[in-house]
Simulated scan of single mutants.
Amino acid sequence: MSPAEDDGPTGIRCRLDELLVARGMTLTRLSELVGVSAVNLSILKNDRARAIRYSTLAAICRALDCEVGELLAIDRD
């Protein structure tokens, strides 16, 4: 089975919660800025997302003034 077909953990961790706290921003406010529902952002924040569009990733990074590498990290555990 190729890695793209694997349904197991990806090993990628989303640091959205940490970035929101550091910037004093709520998930609701980020939702308004990015144009993505708070429910979908919550799925991303809680590491339950299976995929993310580059346009959404870019919009989140613009809203949080961060780089992709600050938002997504490889879980080395």
Rank of each mutant, 00 (worst) to 15 (best):
R48N: 09
I74S: 09
T56E: 10
R62D: 15
E5P: 00
L57H: 09
L19M: 09
D77M: 11
V39F: 02
L27T: 10
D7Y: 03
G8E: 04
R48D: 06
L72D: 08
C14W: 00
V39R: 14
V21G: 02
A73P: 00
I52K: 08
V34D: 03
I74D: 07
D7W: 00
C61R: 11
L30D: 10
A4F: 04
E5S: 06
P9W: 01
A59H: 11
G8A: 06
M25I: 08
V34C: 06
L57Y: 06
S55C: 11
N46M: 08
T56R: 11
K45F: 04
E18I: 08
D77Y: 10
A59R: 14
A63M: 12
V39Q: 12
A51N: 13
P9M: 04
R15T: 05
D17Y: 02
K45I: 02
R48H: 10
M25H: 07
L71T: 11
G24D: 10
R76N: 12
I60Y: 07
S31E: 05
L44A: 05
D7H: 01
I74W: 11
D17K: 15
E18T: 07
D17F: 01
T56D: 13
S37I: 01
I12M: 06
S37H: 02
G8Q: 00
D47H: 05
M25E: 15
R62F: 12
L27G: 08
A22M: 09
A58T: 13
L64P: 12
R15S: 01
E32M: 07
D6M: 02
L33T: 01
V34H: 02
A4L: 06
D47I: 07
D77R: 15
R29S: 13
V68K: 07
N40E: 08
I74K: 12
N40A: 11
D65Y: 07
G24L: 08
G69I: 07
R76L: 14
D17G: 01
A22K: 12
A58D: 15
R48G: 11
I74R: 14
I12Y: 06
A38K: 10
L41S: 05
I43T: 12
R13W: 01
S55I: 10
R13M: 01
A73G: 04
T10K: 02
V34G: 06
L27M: 15
A59F: 13
A38M: 03
A63P: 10
L19N: 03
